[in-house]
Design a protein around this nucleic acid. Structure first.
Lengths: 91, 91
DNA sequence: AATTCATATGAACGATCATTTATATGAGTG
DNA sequence: CACTCATATAAATGATCGTTCATATGAATT
């Protein structure tokens, strides 16, 4: 998984998580609810994102809060999304 | 495969192909040799890239030349690479 | 039209991935 | 200390992906 950024970004749920915590940090439950994903699945994806260095975590009491470590990733995602949309419309 | 750009970019050989034909258009054999990939594997990846809209093809005699359709993709790849490197060094 | 060169395609297979289920860890609370 | 809340992890499974091998297509050449 940790080979390259783009492998980590290839999964739509991981991209959604990045968008979701891009605005403000959130705990695992919030992310799960926000994206309607099972808690354990969210945890798995958070692990991948964390090992890739894309997100940071911080414990506050029982909860663990995650946030994007490099805000630039959101810009890259946006650029990719724009390009993707443009390519689709072409066909 | 055609769901989203990032799924197409997740494979390292496809990314290499994009870099390879980013500078100037090349035929399949040239791409194969350039990246040391089997011809059929190259063709498979070219098909994926083509269906994603990332590349264009043009026949000249026996050969088929491929080029990047949206040069912006190279910039996005570069940005991703820079970010990926930065994230790795952090650890 | 048969042959050759360039590329594409299809089937097969192992490898990796995404998801679910069940369970473990670990911090706070009564 | 027992309990519960929040999160993590491990095992299992089906799905998808990357690659290889064999073969097909299609254009040029003889």
């Amino acid at each position: 998984m940790n080979d390259h950024l783009y492998e980590c970004l290839s999964n739509v749920n991981r991209r959604k998580i990045l968008y979701c915590i891009g605005e403000e940090e959130k705990c695992v439950n919030e992310i799960s609810e926000c994206l309607d994903l099972e808690q354990s699945l969210t945890s798995h994806h958070l692990k991948d994102l964390y090992e890739c260095g894309l997100i940071e975590k911080k414990r506050k009491g029982k909860r663990i809060y995650y946030k994007v470590s490099e805000p630039e990733i959101i810009e890259i995602l946006e650029k990719g999304k724009e390009l993707g949309d443009r390519l689709e419309k072409r066909c």
